[in-house]
Design a protein around this nucleic acid. Structure first.
Lengths: 117, 117
DNA sequence: TGCACAGATTCAAAAAATCAAATATAAGAG
DNA sequence: CTCTTATATTTGATTTTTTGAATCTGTGCA
């Protein structure tokens, strides 16, 4: 049996592409704490309507979030709560990584100070 | 205090960009099970040397994997074991999502069958 | 009807990523 | 040294994304 059409890996890649943008990550980090209207997102992000709506469109298309018309406004939410977990794990990875570079930086500074004397 | 230079969100986005490619995901799924030489990866992936090396380069640049010269060959490994956890969470999300679409598909079929009679 | 407001979509230019093919380098064998 | 094996880098054409600005659409309300 051979793989067909858009492979599972392509599907996965599409999902990660949805996260691969600074604004979209910020949006998801906010939505991970609960649903928000577009206005609320705009305010929280300090970005203009068009930009926010555009990035929400990407997240919607990639099925990462859901949109719900509520009267005059639209309320967005993360489709799967596991996305929150994913961001948590990612955060831990970033911590390790940044801790590593800081340590290296400090070490580098120490080295050059030592070499100079 | 204002944010400086490449923001944390940009850094995060760069990380997810590293995962946002079918071949790179496949590589990471293999490396999550343990270190591998480039040859082993090539064989497992069925891709040519140049392609594999290219994608390994982006994983290296984005600090997702480490490379270690071992005699004549180079052994790659995931830098942080949490990457494995990340892929696991992602897998669970994909499961839910695909299960969802299958369910919807089945439901759609049931609906049209019902409507026809 | 005719504003406003909330949000979505469209467009073109610029920037970044992909891909395949060719070329380069480094280390060990003989 | 020279050949080979393992891996890396470069290049240029192509495709995707990003970005900002402008333009729609829908809805409640005066």
């Amino acid at each position: 049996m051979t793989a067909s059409g858009p492979s599972l890996q392509e599907f996965k890649a599409e999902f990660f592409k949805a996260l691969a943008h600074p604004v979209r990550i910020r949006i998801l980090e906010i939505l991970a704490r609960g649903p928000r209207s577009v206005q609320e997102l705009q305010a929280a992000l300090g970005l203009d309507q068009s930009t926010v709506s555009q990035q929400l469109a990407v997240l919607r298309l990639k099925q990462v979030v859901t949109a719900n018309k509520e009267g005059t406004s639209v309320r967005y939410a993360v489709r799967d709560p596991l996305v929150g977990d994913l961001l948590d794990v990612a955060r831990r990875i970033f911590n390790n990584q940044l801790a590593g570079t800081q340590t290296m930086l400090r070490q580098l500074q120490r080295e050059s100070r030592a070499a100079r004397r």
